[in-house]
């Protein structure tokens, strides 16, 4: 099995490739929201360097969010079209589970809070238990950084925070007495490749927005017609 991984949930854009022999290559192509410009060109280059052609890819794994809306759409549109064109399998993962697996892979254990920057002063957050394996404790939600910090500071339970949402509000998160921080600016592409190889494929990938479009619609309409 040859797996191609696509990661566009944050301002960074990354691709990964796992060859039939299990060799993994991952690259962060850009960190400045230039997903559209770098993604397909990056995939082409990565395949060429591995001496593979597009038709050698048997599975495409893509991060469906939560994260930057436009980034997600670029990644999902690219992954879906690529898989549709080849008739190959498509696997979806979430940004927050990739962060959890990324932390697990570097030895983090116990409670982990993964947070992706949701803009507008909010985070996309999910809590995991990293023990024998990575298990989610709850569903991903939208939350304000202060509320997450207060919740964990008052609980007193040991916890590790990770993700670009934590990096953005690092001073707030550093104030949690029993909290530890680990840096992961990009959801783990190695985790995406590993999950992509083992998880059941899905016929279509649906973006995980966590915000209703109607609310955004009202917001943008109000903005336009003050």
């Amino acid at each position: 099995m040859i797996v191609l991984a696509i990661e566009t949930a944050t301002t960074a854009c990354g691709v990964g490739l796992r060859t039939a022999s299990g060799v993994e290559v991952v690259t962060v192509l850009d960190t400045e929201r230039r997903h559209t410009e770098v993604l397909s060109a990056g995939i082409a280059q990565m395949l060429t360097q591995a001496a593979l052609g597009p038709r050698d890819v048997t599975r495409v794994v893509v991060d469906r969010g939560p994260g930057l809306f436009t980034g997600l759409r670029v990644g999902i549109a690219t992954a879906s079209a690529f898989a549709q064109a080849l008739g190959c399998e498509l696997v979806e993962v979430t940004s927050l589970e990739l962060l959890a697996h990324g932390a697990y892979d570097v030895g983090v254990r116990g409670r982990l809070v993964a947070a992706v920057d949701g803009r507008r002063g909010e985070l996309f957050v999910q809590t995991f238990n990293l023990d024998e394996q990575v298990e989610s404790v709850n569903e991903p939600v939208v939350a304000r950084p202060r509320d997450v910090v207060i919740e964990w500071a008052t609980s007193g339970a040991p916890v590790t925070f990770t993700g670009d949402g934590v990096a953005r509000y690092v001073e707030d998160f550093a104030a949690v007495p029993q909290g530890a921080l680990i840096t992961q600016s990009v959801p783990s592409l190695h985790a995406a490749l590993a999950l992509g190889a083992t998880r059941t494929p899905s016929p279509v990938v649906t973006p995980l927005y966590l915000r209703e479009a109607d609310a955004i619609a009202n917001f943008t309409t109000r903005e336009r017609n003050p």
Partner: peptide, 8 residues
């Protein structure tokens, strides 16, 4: 994005 992926 999709057009680039189809072409590729």
């Amino acid at each position: 994005s999709a057009a680039k992926a189809y072409a590729l």
